[in-house]
Design a protein around this nucleic acid. Sequence first.
DNA 1: TATTTTCCCC
Length: 525
Amino acid sequence: MAAARAAAAVDAYQHNTLIRAAADHRSLLLAFRAMLREGVAADHFTFPFALKALAQAHHRSPPPCAAAPATATTTLGCLHAQMVKSGHGANVYAASALVHAYVSRADAASARAVFDAARHRNVVTWTAMIAGHAAAGEAREAVALFREAVARGQEVNGITVAQVMGACAQSRDLESGRWVHATLRRWGVEPILLDVALATAVLHMYASCGGLDAAFEVFDKMPRRNEVSWNAMAEVCSRHGRQDKVLEVFPGMHSVGMKPDKVTWLSILRACTSKGAAGLGQGVHAYMEKTIGHRHVAVCTSLMDMYSKIGNARSALQIFQCLKRKDLMAWTSMIIGLAKHGHGKDAVQLFNQMQHGGVVPDHVAFVGVLTACSHAGMVDEARKYFDSMWNHYGIRPTIKHYGCMIDLFSRAGRLAEAEGMMQMMPIQPSVTMWGSMMNGCKVHGRADIAERVGRQVAELNPQFGAIYVIMSNIYAEIVLPSVQLLTLYVAWKERGTVEPANELYSGNGEQYRNTRYRSTKRELV
DNA sequence: TATTTTCCCC
């Protein structure tokens, strides 16, 4: 009996080793099934190993098509079921690993279900769950869970704090961030002095919620800094429009013997782009070719973006074509770049190529292709792409997509369709949309529609002052019989918005133009 | 033989 148990333990050890070594979910499943088939029972190492292998495999190569990750999900579900069945669900290591596995698959809801049902939890379980909420963009839940942990007297560590700081940064929750910091100090811990990762997380939190000065203060106090600390600083400066400071990071790092990595380059490139510093950007490009080459998709995407924005579509295209592994953002950047430079048809073609290559478009990619259609006057194609967003990809159109469509219809003079879309869509029309439509009316000489729609807007939203500005634009371009102006004047007066109407009514064409500028300042700022 | 770390392009 004892010998049989010892033999089984040896067997489990061997299977565990195979399971741990699995590089993808397929080989993992094979190794796990082999264990079941040979009748070897899983021990308390099996599930932590298997789940970690699965999480890492997913991290290394996420499914190319987000709509069909069926196999990987099945593997995880299978492990979860076996874990519960075999009674290892009560093992805190296994439970933590399961929470993390769901988190790595961006399934925070399932992770939370496991977390809530777990019989035993420790600091790792709590940390994994807090990290899961943060990764899913559920910053409030992450902070709430951390507060709960502290209230229960649950042990937390530097990793937990780093995660919750990240959540505070994400939701610009300065109050919670300060509270976390103060709580640690109350415990006699100064996180900035503790370790680099934690200090960097604190730095990032203050930078996101407080501002540059708070970030500099933390940075100066840090006893040690690594590349990530410098990168956080560079990123913060570039977000706050301090391009000069970003460009100081490079010599700053150099002076302490550190080299910029791909994240540093992203900030530096962004600084060059927003500064419009073409020469500098090209210098950076040349330097990067020598150091890191064309290996990083993100950096190349940023470079493409820079070249597109300074009007050099050719260089952007060259970098794009050199890219071996093109991801969604690279495709999107190129599509938008082409669209903006009047190559609408090429951009649409690129979008189709991307889809054929199995890259699944997201909402930004759709903004790109719709913009491209708009510039190329491809109204019916746009309609097709727009419909496929929800029908094929389950992406709900946002205000930007509706804006593209309305702009597109209006430019093409298909004003009834523009109007129809504005009436059908589930969101409030924006000033830009009314502007697009009114502009379409102007270009296509449809003062009748402009007047009807404008009146409608004024009636539906009397507080929506911008419509009067837009209307005065129209009237400045298309002179209507004075009786119609008078009608409008009366309508506006009833609404209590007579000021712009007064100016409009008493003037001639020249004055309408003046009205437009004055009104624009008053109404839109 | 085990679980959880900071900065990131469209």
